[in-house]
Nucleic acid binder design. Sequence first.
DNA 1: TCTACGACTATTTTT
DNA 2: TAGTCGTAGA
Length: 721
Amino acid sequence: MLSTHKLLINLNEAQTAAVTTDAQHSLVLAGAGSGKTRVLVYRIAWLLAAEGVSPYSILALTFTNKAAAEMRNRVAELLDKPANGMWIGTFHSIALRLLTMHHKEAGLPKNFQILDSEDQYRLIRRVISDLELDEKQWIPRSVQGFINDKKNDGIRANEIEDFGDDNSSTLIQIYQHYDDHCLRGGLVDFAEMLLRTHQLLLNNPPLLEHYQGRFGAILVDEFQDTNEIQSAFIRLLAGAKNRVMVVGDDDQSIYAWRGAKIDHIIGFKDVYANVTQYKLEQNYRSTNNILKAANAVIKNNAKRLGKDLWSEQSEGEPIQYYGAYSEYDESAFVAEEIEKLIDSGIDGDQIAILYRSNMQSRLLEENLLKHNIDYKVYGGLRFFERMEIKDVLAYVRLINNRHDDVGFERIINTPTRGLGAKTINQIRNCAQINQVSLWDALNICINNKVLSARASTSVAAFVNMIDEFDYNHDKEDLNPLFDDVIERTGLRDHYQKEPPEKALTRLENLDELLNAAETFVKSEEDDQIGMTALASFLAQVSLEAGERSSDKDVPCVQLMTLHSAKGLEFPYVFLVGLEQGLFPHQNSMEDPEKLQEERRLCYVGITRAEKQLFMTYATSRRIRGRTQGCAPSRFLREVPQDLVHQIQGNIFTTPRNTMFSNQESSPFAQYSPGILVSHKIFGEGTIIELSGQGDYTQIMVEFQQHGTKILAAKFAKLDIV
DNA sequence: TCTACGACTATTTTT
DNA sequence: TAGTCGTAGA
């Protein structure tokens, strides 16, 4: 048995307090690099060792597979035995497990399939076309966003208020039809997994009671990223008696645009009773200069719980600032500095270049190439998202479940077998009229002989082929099935015919898929709930689509967006493109909520750096074929001057651009974001941000009663409360 | 069924 | 500017 003493010697005071808390609910505000995962892992160990909690009553939720795997491994390491019995997983994998175990109660067929975003997009397009709507007016991407937003908020089509206008009633109609399709085909999208799980428990009191009785201790990682339905799910399982510990950092909430609500972490204390809050502010990652810069930037956000990072490390190197003339100059500088670092003996993988948007990577790549520096760009398609892989999987899915319309549509004419738009439309129409799956519709068409002679032969051959894959569902070895599919469907030949370079990677990927099928071993959990190897494999590839980039063995410089950098750390970090309009992004500059999220993104970027941080800005940049003059990002000037070494350009003395604020020299210096003020008409409110200068200073205030207003500082006569 | 051309659009993407 | 996507035409 693990001694409790041994547990605590590795923790600092704040961590110990959180780990050993006896509060019913606890909120652990864990700053970047403050040992958040450590607290979660030790907390689990503490519950088991010191409090005698059964592993079966532990439920730990994360957002990413990586985080779940890390937690699981570290718990096992600490306990010195596998983390059996407890449920540690992503929200989605836990939801999937519940839906699989209780598929009947959830209203799903046993072999239901998961739709990834691309599958969902395709299905939505199909629904729009079925409803004879114009894609120009009902843009599939926006419709997809609409449906997912609603699902994330826990709202079904029939629960949306119909204002009677064309817009809302059509959207509701599409949503409803889309859900009907999913249900008919046994298809579940990502948002649906969570929503359906929540409803499963909500509508089955005995089931809910069972799980509430089981999970006495619920732990949630990255709580700031929870959306409405995830938060409701936790609340539901918590019931009245269970203990909930949420860990997160409101300052690192960067996914509001995907439905995450920072209010969940900020308002945690209001929703749960008996909450004790712990702040982890000691940072084990970065030098103090870096932390001071991060603290100074994030301080400008009004909406936060508040926390200051510190470190026992030295001040470290100052932050290096380079004001480039152009984006060419900027990327040349970055490449040169990296070359110097590498020449001084630093490995490439110790260095990261972080940017706001993916398009910025190109020039950087060109310059790294020029200097013969190995690099790796994160982003793009993941392994199981590649076309050839999805094609094979679509066949397998159809073999597994004939009513999988998404799989059907994908491969009915891939490789081409003479089934053009006309035939497919006939089948679709038939499905639409009879309200059946495409597979059934196809058979109706065959029986009624409505198809042309040529199409009929082709279709019959297709049906035969699929039926001939008489797959034994209990088989553990998946390789023969996949191998068979790739050969007999003609997919291998199909890809072989592509231009040599493309063909080669595609065929390699197919082999990689075979390899994955060969080595796949069903997890013990999946086995226990009676999933077949195939179901388990398909679920895994949908939930865990693989790495975002191909891996190289050489230590490479890492290029990625700020979003992808969350959770990672690098000794040397280049934060590039610090310009108004790029970062903060144009689309996020006006709205105070969005601007604050951009600032959090900046905070995430800064806190990735362990030893040294470089920040660059380009005076001009070509965007969409047009060269634009760029003002330096407001975030740059939020970094205190004494922390910065300016290699070129002077961010603090150049004439101030009216685009961004400067609080210090303003006649309204007494106002700053976060300050509580009162207005004689609007009452009390919090300053969100200042802009403009001198007499033209404008103040954005979020009033408690009247919402957000932008006021001229000169006339508003705001009193500081 | 494939190719070529023109129209369109341009943040971030855990599952 | 450049990359993607849909459609027209061979």
